[in-house]
Amino acid sequence: MAAAAQPGSPPLSVVLRGSAGRRRREQIIRAIFFGAASLSILVSIFIVLSLIFEAINFLAQIGLDQLVALGWFPRRGLFDLRTLFVGSVITTGIAILVAGPIGLGTAIYLSEYAQPRVRRIVKPILEILAGIPSVVLGFFALTWINPQLVQRLNPGAEGFNLMAAGIGVGVLIIPLIASVSEDAMRAVPRSLREASYGLGARRITTSLRVVFPAAISGITAAFIIGISRGIGETMVLAIAAGGSGGSIFQLNPFEPGQSITAAIAALATGTDQVRGASAAFPSLFFLGLILFFLTLSLNLAGDVFVRRTRQRY
């Protein structure tokens, strides 16, 4: 105090503010970082704008009755949305039926049963599986899953079908469901498990009746994110589900079909031709818009569940 009050030295508040040059530099750096951060908002705005603009263009060009037809054949003016919805729902349903039990089983094993040594080996292998591009899984679904699994169980299955594609998507989301569920279960405090063992519960009881319910929010989130990934997956369906020129409305998973994503890919393959067919080109963006809001709502729901887990512990 005595030193600060000495005549000739500036008040303390001024000293702490530093030189004007230093402050200006700090502010410029801050502004640059803020600029980078706001770019991400710009990306979202551009996505929504570019989708909405062409989607309205599409709806203006066709009659709404064209949205229900024999099938999805955009180049012939048949825009049956049911065909694509059914394709997406069937394949995503199959994918969850495959990846749900396997992913959850893997997660429970890694979190509750595995020795640290086993975990150290299995986790990186899961990461490798997660890192395999989806175009590769599409090829695998077409050339191995279909002939070796699907057509063995049902010899009547077509060369391209929704079942093989669905299983392929399932393999793709196993690592996702496994890792998100495992994180949720490992976040359950040790004391809960110890209390359960202290009461004489076995490992199966502790896993299923204590850890599983405590982690249910995170596990639900894993399934929601898995569904969202399944609906958004493009390449496996574009390669293994068939229907590259379009698809008629049908509900049989052993027949070829088309999903929302695969329809976009099929239409865009050689987009030059699409430019000719007037309503076909903007239909790309209409489908994109549906896909965007579908996955957005699923992701928001998943986010809610993820945050609920974080608040608890």
Binding site: I41, F46, I47, G232, T234, F292, D303
Partner: peptide, 25 residues
């Protein structure tokens, strides 16, 4: 908060939709 929620959602947007963004922009 808006920026960080927005980023988390962008991470979940299907890749084919980014393709449409690229096509338009």
């Amino acid at each position: 908060q808006l920026i960080s929620i927005n980023i988390r959602n962008l991470a979940g947007v299907p890749s084919v939709v980014y393709g449409l963004l690229g096509l338009a922009v």
